[in-house]
Structures are given as structure tokens and as C-alpha cells.
């Protein structure tokens, strides 16, 4: 089995708009974190591009965070997730769901497999599993909250 970190929040938008903002405007709403650095460089700009989730750094270099595994607007999105500090053979998986609740949308993120980050990896910061996964949950809560703020801009 694998570890799962699941978080969900409601945003004030339809699933279609929430999906569009999540995928199309990730460069605008994404909140980088020192705890979950995708690369050792200064944070770049994220984008879903041609079946990939990429980060374009200030230098122009492109880091591939993951590949899109399912693209099912407006309900579901799955992509793989790896940080530059992960061992080469390690990938984790992120599933995002958009569920209509009244006139709002419940956006949930499930990040699977993060416990596999090795004990000596810089990506773990020395945290035991429980602390690491709790931080990861808070990280994704911040991200969904940022989506929620973004959808209200229109």
C-alpha cells in the first residue's frame, strides 16, 4: 500500500472554471514552499504544457515536475510528481478532483506515495513520516486556498 495525503476545500466557482484555473493559471496562483522545493533554484513559473507539468526557471531552464496521467475536465486530473532532490527512480502521484456542491466546487488533492522519500533525502528535511505527511497536507491546503482566491478574481 501507499501513503495518502488528502485535502479538500470549497472554492466559489463551477467545476469547469475551477479546473480551468487550476490547470491554465497555475503559473499565477501557485505558492512555492521552502519545504517542498521542486528544484534547488529560485522558484520558477509552473505550467501544464503538452501533457507535462513543468517549471520554467529564471535561467530559462525547464524542469519537468511530472507527467499528466489523466486529464478529464471538469472532474479529474492526475499527474506524477517528483522533486529534483528525489532519487531517480522515485515518483509520486497527485490526483485532483473537482466536485460540484451547490454553486461551489469541492476541490480535493490526494498526494500518494510521499512516504517513499528516503530518510536521508533533502526533500524530507529529517522529518519522520507523520510530520512529513502533515506538512505536505498543509502545503496542498495552501495551494487549494490559492486556487480559491484566484477563481474569485473574475
Amino acid at each position: 500500500m501507499t501513503s495518502k495525503v488528502y485535502v479538500a476545500l470549497r472554492v466559489k466557482a463551477t467545476p469547469a472554471r475551477a479546473f480551468a484555473v487550476f490547470t491554465g493559471e497555475i503559473g499565477a496562483w501557485w505558492r512555492p514552499s521552502n519545504l517542498f522545493q521542486t528544484t534547488p533554484r529560485a522558484p520558477g513559473r509552473l505550467a501544464f504544457d503538452d501533457g507535462r507539468l513543468i517549471e520554467t526557471l529564471a535561467s530559462g531552464k525547464v524542469f519537468e515536475i511530472g507527467r499528466v496521467l489523466a486529464w478529464e475536465p471538469p472532474e479529474r486530473l492526475v499527474f506524477s510528481w517528483r522533486q529534483a532532490s528525489f532519487p531517480p527512480d522515485l515518483t509520486t502521484e497527485v490526483e485532483v478532483r473537482f466536485e460540484a456542491v451547490g454553486d461551489e466546487t469541492r476541490v480535493s488533492v490526494e498526494h500518494r506515495g510521499f512516504h517513499q522519500v528516503p530518510a536521508d533525502s533533502a526533500a524530507r528535511h529529517g522529518f519522520p513520516d507523520a510530520a512529513l505527511l502533515a506538512r505536505l497536507a498543509a502545503y496542498w491546503q495552501d495551494q487549494i486556498a490559492a486556487v480559491g482566491a484566484r477563481v474569485e478574481l473574475r
Binding site: S3, D129, L133, A134, A137
Partner: peptide, 19 residues
């Protein structure tokens, strides 16, 4: 509504929150 659910690699609930 479940707003946070953390499960370890054995499927045990480590932490959860409802909103």
C-alpha cells in the same frame, strides 16, 4: 466534509479533519 485525511503506507488513518 473531510478537509484533511492522512494515511500511512499501511492504510491507517494518521490524522484527519472535517470542515
Amino acid at each position: 466534509e473531510i478537509s484533511m485525511l492522512i494515511e500511512d503506507d499501511n492504510g491507517n488513518v494518521v490524522h484527519s479533519e472535517m470542515r
